[in-house]
Design a binder for these strands. Structure first.
Lengths: 330, 330
DNA sequence: CATTCTTACGTACTGCGTAAGAATG
DNA sequence: CATTCTTACGCAGTACGTAAGAATG
């Protein structure tokens, strides 16, 4: 009597505000959607929508049913996910990462995921940590990999590697600023001799280090703030100033003397990375991906070896939302 | 992709042990059931049944899915019940009562239910309280009306009227046993002069009074025990002994001097009745029926007015499990 | 060899799409 | 009058039933 299709129709009408939009979303026609709702209404003997106006407005009973339908659909999805063989689990998986991950081991992670879940459509998104956290909180993303800055109790946190950062600039700038006989370890205050490039407090690393700077009495220096790691790197390579950058990732550039490390006293603390997903999803899928992340996490970058071209981190083409399942017009 | 029909197939196969039985239950053919399962299996990419033997055995994944399917079906039912207009809510409602209720206000209760839920198929069952409790605990009955003897925390208890009982026997027996000038109030011990008919401890009233007898030092007297109220009444009317019987119900027989009350000191306590249903069902339906019960509860009996014919309490014919919905062979 | 599930095949019916209709702002 | 939902109607594809096949105990 009652079917998932009917509930999906209800859900998407409520979500998108019109029968037409829902029909489009469900790859079917307004007519079909209308009838699914009518089936529900006659089946339950209630009015779900108030048709006195042109716009679709839920009745009170309709609102109640919507909540229940949403729950039922959600549970169905969870059942599908829990019980599906990995080889056939076809769904979107929205994976959020920060730039550093995008530049380094994101391809490896996606490979790993696709090896285990070949039908999964992985949609990576590169954003600042703060944005990723928001997206996770509002449930518009499934799993994120970011610096482990905030802890939300409703998240399951899988610790990954720690990222070792160091202050870096061009050798020329170092010599020009510190002279030919620089101290073995520069006190933090000594950094004020440089133009310091930092990351804003929208970035997890920026937040951690901003806090640390304050705790360690680092003076607020003449600094530029950027939210883009690649831009930051480019500015640094051009000799504009000094920045904290991930050591392992930039090892090739250090080797080729395009950059050099300026050791400080105290040295920068490491940034712990973690994979996070919402606890209430409690899905094997998320847990598995987190495990893959723990396994493949590696902030060394093959990209860097090829020269100063650091234009990685491009998003793969977003997969289409599945072939039309209905009998759509050709 | 995944449908309720498929899950129902799975559920009933597990429940009944074979594809054929499930098909029968679902008003369809083995073939159809088999295919519904196959759809699930290919859809999920898993094996649900182990076909190496002839008998249908669930695989591990199958067991997991069964649990999830059961939950989903249960939730669907709850949605249907919650949101359905009362006029269209068609389901079975198994109502358990004791004999006393069956003899008195059960018809009034059923009328009330049917007035509010015209499509509901009410299936009354008359059993001893202990059986009713069991049935409620094992969830094979929806709501029971019994003496309020046991309290299970998982039940929602709606108190109803209290039943006033008194010791009764034929006037002839009273005179023969107590003489022409009986005491106004017979001490409990005085009952040992009679053959005492009691109800066994499978009956709620029997349990309450058994307890009370022990507390009030009533001697274990020469007694007969019966679990059938009508039989008890018949034996009493034939002058065999003395019994506790509901005063209001038997008022007509008392008026016509077929029975008389033997007042005791102390008098029998009242028996509180209650409607009980499982808390986890939390259904409007059960709550409504309990409210109807509270409203219509009335232990006076129109049956008794017609003479000694007390052959009420017959179960109405059990309704058929709905007309075939599928396309069954004619 | 009886029972239980699967497979094959033709069919019936549900539910879909097209297109026209009604109602609203 | 454009937009939004409903209705009518014919069609298509799914899912069903029959009946035969395979496998098990």
């Amino acid at each position: 009597m009652i079917t998932f299709k009917q509930m999906e129709a209800l859900f998407w009408i409520a979500e998108l505000g019109s029968f037409a939009a829902a029909a489009n979303k469900l790859n079917t026609t307004q007519s079909a959607v209308s009838k699914r709702i009518q089936e529900l209404e006659t089946g339950f003997g209630i009015a779900i929508f108030d048709r006195s106006r042109r716009t679709a407005r839920l009745t009170e009973k309709g609102e109640e049913l919507l909540l229940l339908a949403r729950d039922l659909l959600e549970r169905r999805d969870r059942v599908v996910e829990r019980v599906s063989a990995k080889e056939v689990l076809a769904r979107r998986f929205r994976l959020g990462v920060t730039e550093l991950t995008a530049l380094t081991w994101l391809p490896a992670l996606i490979d790993e995921i696709r090896a285990h879940y070949p039908r999964l459509i992985v949609e990576p998104e590169v954003e600042l940590s703060s944005v990723l956290f928001e997206r996770l909180a509002e449930d518009s993303i499934d799993l994120i990999v970011t610096p482990d800055v905030f802890h939300d109790a409703r998240c399951i946190v899988t610790p990954l590697k720690r990222v070792e950062n160091a202050w870096m600039c061009t050798p020329a700038l170092a010599t020009a600023t510190l002279g030919p006989h620089p101290p073995r370890r520069l006190p933090l205050a000594g950094l004020s001799a440089f133009t310091v490039l930092t990351q804003g407090n929208l970035s997890g690393t920026g937040v951690v280090y901003g806090r640390w700077f304050r705790q360690n009495g680092m003076p607020t220096v003449h600094s530029l703030s950027s939210n883009n790691l690649v831009a930051q790197l480019g500015l640094t390579l051009s000799g504009l100033g000094i920045t904290y950058l991930p050591v392992h990732t930039l090892r090739p550039l250090l080797r080729r003397n395009l950059l050099q490390i300026v050791e400080t006293d105290p040295p920068l603390p490491d940034i712990p990375y973690a994979a996070l997903y919402r606890a209430e999803h409690a899905s094997t899928l998320c847990a598995d991906v987190a495990a893959f992340a723990a396994q493949r996490c590696d902030f060394t970058s093959p990209l860097m070896s090829a020269g100063t071209q650091t234009g990685g981190g491009e998003k793969p083409g977003r997969a289409l939302p599945g072939p039309a399942r209905g009998r759509r017009a050709p």
